[in-house]
Design a protein around this nucleic acid. Structure first.
Length: 570
RNA sequence: CGGGGCGUAGCGCAGCCUGGUCAGCGCGACUGGUUUGGGACCAGUAGGUCGCGAGUUCAAAUCUCGCCGCCCCGACCA
């Protein structure tokens, strides 16, 4: 490919709305262009990268017996009525009608479609297990697309679905798929990608993992012990805090005029916030108030609370709703609150700590020496604490580190949620009909490309790994007006093309600096430079994009030199 | 959906407060010439319903109202 022919302008200045490295460089390098919020076109450079990522994914999926299929983007809503998801999924599902008024939707994931396929094609235990996957466009009407390709509305996803006759078989396959994912992310060059356990429990003991590319701009927060033994998404992370345990002292009412916040009360009484208990009030979608108590210095993790309550959405209660359950805003506690009248959820931190300062449920008064087991009238004790950086790891006790990550893939043991709802059954050895047991496995392709840039770039542009680079060799001809340079560069270009090398030849009559900057934005791992100086010396200059190597190579051996490198740098 | 910011040439911006030589600058593109090792120089050219719509006014990019789009933070996210 000659750079003079390549469609996709490199631009000198970053678009104003691009903030993250991947967004800036994918725009500046001419890899992608926005069409609408969260909707992008891929230019030739971007498409080449995506194609390479997809090839790696295909190889690894095929290696674990996956079979590639292609299901429609446009699906009839009736299929989603069967699974119940047209009810349960909100506005992120884009719905519309066809010309006959038939309700249709754009697939955001393809469980229904794959079950539709499998329930007729696969009917016997002899055909199981099997795994189908596709690389297909997904559409999600995201509330807030952001950071270029990190969070978009339309995107290509590899989604795979496995079907099994037993939980054991699913788990075994799940482990194989996990290994395949590790290989995929290694091969695409994500140096720092970890799998973390996510959300187990809500869906009846279902297990799932998220693959997180560590990056500052990531949307997910991960807690990890220094040795990596423990790692978890913030939504499910737990820590092992130390609770102050001492003999219970008698309750003592104290005057705390105008002191409403934990900071005010703690400093007024001269105690640490960790020796207080605070009350937080939520309202569930049915309008029920939930009375939450947690140690004063710890925040409530709303995701954990929602899961515990099985409530899809929670809002903070207002003062009237708080008073209605017998508490006084600013001075609230579960002391004297009847847990049979209002739902009381107590975090372990508050239940296990001794002699806490808590509200008196009347203005301007608190109590000292609250002890849950002695003073509370019931309440569900569970872990709803938000983990903080530095909290002790639940496994090792070492201070937890907080990291940000981009979720590039996830795998999930779905079970029979869809197969039961949609009658996806097989006949077992006894001729009995059984629902298939299902797993699903996703990878965001464009997001993976963006994550690689986040992890592999310098101030000038992306440093693509050999495995997914749009071109492996970038040839610059400095001063192509010079007939010798022109001839030598043309010859070298043709020789490498003939060897099947993916080479980009900058044949433009530009200044050196201009060409080098474009080359940096394109990020090919290997660079060759032909100039009047190198021609005179009978050599070609060689550099790697990562700056680790730079040397002069004899003109006659440069083709073999490059071929050797391409073989070893795979 | 809540909070904040922004819409002027392909990109980055100035002009708006104080209405009137106000359709401008830099980059990019095109033509010609000089250049050629880290985003060169000279001369010239093309490119804009100043986001859209109402209103105020002799006069609106500029003031008022409404709408739309985009970005950031939060909420939400199979």
């Amino acid at each position: 490919m000659k750079l003079s022919r390549l469609v996709g302008q490199r631009i000198k200045e970053a678009p104003r709305d691009a903030q993250t490295a991947s967004h800036i460089f994918l725009m500046r390098g001419g890899y992608v262009r926005p069409v609408s919020t969260g909707i992008y076109s891929l230019l030739p450079l971007g498409k080449r990268i995506v194609t390479k990522i997809e090839r790696i994914i295909r190889e690894e999926m095929n290696r674990i017996d996956g079979q590639e299929v292609l299901m429609p983007v446009v699906l009839p809503q009736e299929l989603w009525d069967e699974s119940g998801r047209s009810e349960s999924v909100g506005p992120e599902l884009l719905r519309f009608q066809d010309r006959n008024g038939k309700p249709m939707l754009l697939g955001m994931t393809h469980e229904e479609a794959v079950v539709h396929l499998t329930r007729t094609e696969v009917t016997s235990y002899k055909q199981l297990p099997c795994m189908l996957y596709q690389l297909q466009t997904k559409y999600r009407d995201e509330a807030r697309p952001r950071a270029g390709l990190i969070r978009v509305r339309e995107f290509t996803m590899k989604d795979g679905y496995s079907f099994h006759t037993s939980q054991e078989c699913l788990e075994q396959y799940y482990r194989r798929c996990h290994e395949a994912y590790v290989r995929i992310f290694e091969r695409v060059g994500l140096a720092n990608c970890i799998s973390i356990e996510s959300d187990s429990g809500m869906m009846g003991g279902a297990v799932s993992h998220e693959f997180m590319a560590i990056a500052e701009c990531g949307e997910d927060t991960i807690f990890m012990s220094p040795d990596g033994q423990y790692k978890a998404n913030r939504d499910v992370a737990v820590s092992k805090p130390v609770y102050v345990k001492e003999p219970p002292l008698p309750l003592e009412k104290v005057h705390t005029p105008g002191r409403k916040t934990i900071e005010e009360v703690a400093s007024f009484l001269g105690v640490e916030p960790s020796r207080t208990g605070k009350a937080v009030f939520y309202v569930d979608p049915q309008g029920n108030v939930v009375f939450v108590m947690i140690r004063g210095d710890i925040e409530v993790n709303e995701a954990k609370l929602r899961k515990h309550l099985q409530a899809p959405e929670l809002k903070f209660a207002n003062d009237d709703q708080i008073r209605a359950v017998g508490a006084e805003p600013g001075y609230a506690s579960i002391l004297n609150v009847d847990a049979s009248k209002v739902r009381v959820v107590v975090d372990v931190s508050a239940a296990e700590s001794s002699n806490l300062v808590v509200g008196a449920n009347e203005p301007d008064y608190h109590f000292k020496n609250f002890n849950f087991s002695r003073d509370a009238k019931g309440g569900e004790v569970t872990d709803i604490a938000a983990v903080r950086e530095g909290d002790p790891c639940p496994v090792t006790g070492a201070p937890l580190r907080m990291l940000r990550g981009i979720e590039v893939g996830n795998i999930f043991q779905l079970g029979t949620k869809y197969t039961v709802a949609m009658n996806c059954n097989y006949l077992d050895q006894n001729g009995k009909s059984q629902p298939m047991i299902m797993g699903c496995y996703g990878i965001g392709v464009g997001r993976t490309m963006a994550a690689v840039v986040e992890q592999s770039h310098d101030q000038y542009g992306p440093v693509w790994p050999m495995s997914i680079a749009p071109f492996t060799v970038h040839l610059c001809a400095l001063n192509v007006g010079d007939a010798n340079v022109r001839r030598e560069a043309d010859t070298l270009y043709q020789a490498l093309l003939d060897r099947g090398v993916e080479i980009l030849f900058d044949d433009r009559s530009e200044k050196a600096g201009f060409m080098f900057n474009d080359a940096d934005l394109i990020g090919a791992p290997l660079r060759l430079i032909v100039s009047p100086k190198t021609v005179a010396a009978g050599q070609v200059e060689f550099k790697t994009r990562d700056g680790k190597r730079k040397e002069m190579v004899n003109r006659d051996s440069v083709v073999e030199f490059v071929m050797d490198l391409l073989r070893t740098m795979r």
